[in-house]
């Protein structure tokens, strides 16, 4: 069964968001998403410094089975990227909520967080 940690917010397009103490947000894909994709073999990482808008494509994840877009769950500037994923994309499968994080964004409009789903709502959607 997929895990849906309570302390995260989720987008309907299967990204998760964690609000950090400094106001930035960390982003990744959900356990459910990585299970659907299967073995991940390449990740087109977003670029540090890029400015993204909520719901825009920001990255592409390729598994053996399929290519899947990752959408920015929130608008802002990309301030850090998980470069380890370039050599070890499978980390996104093995620990989607910790070591497999994708990037950190400094939100330009934190009120967009209100539009994201809580764990229960997102889990219900994935059933």
């Amino acid at each position: 069964m997929s895990e849906f940690p309570d302390d995260l917010k989720y987008a309907a397009t299967h990204e998760w968001v964690r609000v950090e103490e400094d106001g930035s947000v960390t982003i990744g894909i959900s356990d459910h998403a990585q299970e659907l994709l299967g073995d991940i073999v390449f990740i087109e990482l977003p670029e540090e410094g890029a400015v993204v808008s909520a719901k825009d494509e920001m990255s592409v994840v390729e598994s053996v089975k399929a290519a899947s877009d990752i959408y920015a769950p929130i608008s802002g500037e990309v301030i850090a990227v998980n470069e380890d994923l370039a050599d070890a994309p499978e980390t996104m499968n093995s620990s989607p909520y910790t070591d497999g994080w994708l990037c950190r964004i400094l939100p330009s409009n934190p009120s967009e967080l209100e539009e994201l789903l809580d764990a229960d709502t997102y889990a219900g959607m994935c059933e």
């Binding site: 073999v41 390449f42 087109e44 390729e62 053996v64 399929a66 290519a67």
Partner: peptide, 9 residues
Amino acid sequence: VMEERGVLR
């Protein structure tokens, strides 16, 4: 054969 990153579909 494509040796760069990416997957042929």
